[in-house]
Design a protein around this nucleic acid. Structure first.
Ligand code: FES
Ligand code: FES
Lengths: 141, 141
DNA sequence: TCTATACTTGACCATTTTAGTCAGGTATGT
DNA sequence: ACATACCTGACTAAAATGGTCAAGTATAGA
């Protein structure tokens, strides 16, 4: 079970954005430099964040991105959903009512993985960008 | 974040084993048929489980595998550790005191992922094979 | 108006990981 | 002896990952 860097970078970038967008929009170039993330890769990520109304873009010189909601209204769930970082613990397709390998019944561990998925997602539903900002401020003092 | 089938199969197989090893050892062939998992793949998995003292093997005709501890003494953590199904949320190497991309400092989200890792692992530390057996019995009645 | 900045889009790709298969072997109960 | 079943290591097709690259478009400021 590992977190992909797309999800990790998305959150890193948004924390950075949230810290610096008080007055002016923040360019991906700045985020790229501060966080050490490839600019091209960031562009892919922000394209998705924009489609999912997490951020808004301002084009042209002095342009950049701005959060489209307040930090406390942006949960990790929203971010992960936007960049397709999904938690997948079961093997079976839920919509088909089949088990793991196309079998008729659910496998013996199906419920366990379902519980696990819920357990992990509850973490993402609790944490908001604001929580991360606080946390980061505390560290610096 | 997804669970690999190696981890999933290991748990499936051990639940199966726990249910049927009351008297005789259980052959991988039987597990393979009951759970629909490739026999060759199971052999790889059980080789690791054996090295980590989760199961013991009995060779020859009528042979098979047996749990080496009681079901309530085998946690998911033990199983996952045995088959190298590890939870990895941070990008940086913990032993090196460097950040995400070889940088000097930890990235802004490092603590978050650490928390997440702990959160997930706590699930695996709580659940034992015995819990899964109970759960499964309840379902059948 | 020209130009630099910065967002936008889509194709492309090397590497790594996953989820196995295959081909042999060895031990042992009957 | 022989069938069963564990044991070992090499191998591999396919998918996912973690990006890069190229070619735009929009806009602020000189
Ligand atoms: S995970 Fe759903 S049936 Fe196996
Ligand atoms: S995850 Fe540890 S520094 Fe980024």
């Amino acid at each position: 079970m590992k977190l992909t860097s797309k999800g990790r970078y998305a959150v890193m970038a948004l924390v950075d954005l949230a810290r610096f967008d008080n007055i002016n929009p923040v360019s991906l170039r700045d985020i790229s430099l501060r966080q050490g993330i490839s600019l091209d890769y960031l562009e892919q990520i922000f394209s998705k964040l924009k489609k999912n109304k997490i951020v808004e873009s301002i084009r042209g010189t002095q342009g950049g991105y701005v959060l489209s909601r307040k930090p406390n209204e942006i949960k990790l769930t929203n971010i992960f959903h936007a960049v397709d970082e999904k938690v997948k613990t079961v093997q079976c397709k839920k919509e088909l009512k089949k088990g793991c390998n196309g079998r008729a019944t659910k496998c013996v561990t199906h419920n366990l993985w379902d519980e696990l998925e819920t357990h992990i997602n509850s973490f993402f539903e609790k944490k908001s960008l604001e929580d991360l900002l606080k946390n980061n401020t505390e560290q610096r003092t």
